[in-house]
């Protein structure tokens, strides 16, 4: 029967629709950039772009970790808390120790917190949403207890190099962000581990029966998310040369937004780092454009909210269409 089965009956229209679904987000970014450049040509100025890069590096780096978690079918609400913990840790240690030591300890703390998330989700089998909501509270609480809600100011020039240093105008933090995205994107797309992330998100039971250590893969994604939040926290501490608990309570929403707007599916199994990069670019362009055009901050939130909803509606529109038109006929079972 396989001999007579056609190799493809997919119409060009369907292929076009799929291509739009996959790459439409790139077009959206191009349109947005074009619109804002026309309204305010200063947007494309080298200095402005470099500032955006440095400003958005923490969110973008956390977005990398979140992308891993979301592709496994999970969710990480605790990245904001881990980010604050690591920023405070870096600043507290950085007052007396060398920046390298402070940063390393802080990033390790983030990874350990992430691994703890992984354990709660895979070992204790708590729903990821609830698990990371819980650990988020625990981590924030621990940070407050340890610091007594005090800010730490680092008065040591080398501490600020990572966050504020530049080479030919390009911020180090932006370089680090790009490097991490390239590495993380490569790992996800081209290594057995990365493909296992997709496998677990696509069908956890099939992956387990096929011999994938699903708990380890899922757990690792949370550890990576924690690690990324740690790096982001360190960058912020270095940028501000200080840190305090509750640095940015809304950060977790920005991180989720860049991942979702990029088109990584919340149901798991689908997504990519380049998508998150596009998501960051869209959000950053928008926010910077608003500032350049003097749009009220209150309106900014409204528009961001609309964009998140619009992005999800685009990504998943076929789910609404499918049941009415019948399931798409498969290629062989006609």
């Amino acid at each position: 029967m396989t001999m007579t089965a056609p190799t493809s009956i997919e119409s060009t229209g369907l292929r076009a629709a799929r291509a739009f679904r996959s790459y439409g987000i790139v077009g959206a970014l191009a349109l947005l950039v074009a619109a804002i450049t026309i309204a305010q040509p200063g947007f494309l100025a080298y200095g402005n772009l470099m500032n955006i890069l440095s400003q958005w590096a923490p969110v973008a780096i956390m977005g990398i970790g979140m992308t891993y978690v979301v592709i496994t079918g999970g969710f990480d609400l605790s990245v904001g808390a881990i980010y604050s913990l690591c920023a405070v840790t870096a600043a507290a240690i950085g007052r007396t120790e060398a920046p390298v030591v402070a940063f390393t300890v802080a990033i390790l703390a983030g990874m350990i917190a992430g691994a703890a998330n992984g354990f709660v989700v895979t070992g204790l089998r708590v729903n990821p949403f609830i698990a990371t909501l819980g650990t988020s509270l625990i981590i924030s609480g621990v940070t407050l207890v340890l610091t007594g809600n005090a800010a730490f100011v680092v008065d040591f020039e080398p501490f600020t190099v990572l966050g504020s240093g530049r080479l030919l105008g390009v911020p180090y933090s932006g370089m680090l962000m790009v490097a991490l995205m390239i590495v993380a994107g490569f790992v996800l797309s081209y290594t057995p581990f990365g493909q296992s992330i997709y496998a677990v998100g696509g069908n956890a039971e099939a992956s387990r029966l096929a011999g994938i250590r699903t708990s380890l893969v899922t757990g690792s994604s949370y550890a990576i998310s924690g690690l990324a939040a740690g790096i982001a926290g360190v960058i912020t501490a270095s940028q501000l040369s200080s840190a305090q608990p509750n640095l940015n309570p809304n950060l977790v929403f920005d991180v989720l937004t860049v991942v979702i707007v990029g088109g990584t599916s919340l149901t798991g199994g689908r997504g990519a780092i380049w998508r998150t990069a596009i998501g960051v670019a869209i959000l950053a362009t928008l926010q910077n454009g608003f500032n350049l055009l003097d749009v009220d901050a209150y309106y900014q939130n409204i528009i961001k909210g609309v964009i998140i909803i619009a992005a999800l509606a685009t990504v998943d529109w076929h789910r609404f269409v499918r049941p009415r038109s019948g399931r798409r006929p498969s290629t062989t079972d006609l």
């Binding site: 057995p192 493909q195 496998a199 696509g202 099939a206 096929a210 994938i212 199994g269």
Partner: peptide
């Protein structure tokens, strides 16, 4: 479907499931 395959991935990828290396 529910326990054996990742349906929205290519066939060859599904053969390699669990041994991507």
């Amino acid at each position: 479907k529910a326990q054996g395959l990742v349906l929205d991935r290519p066939s060859a990828w599904n053969v390699a499931l669990g041994q991507f290396g």
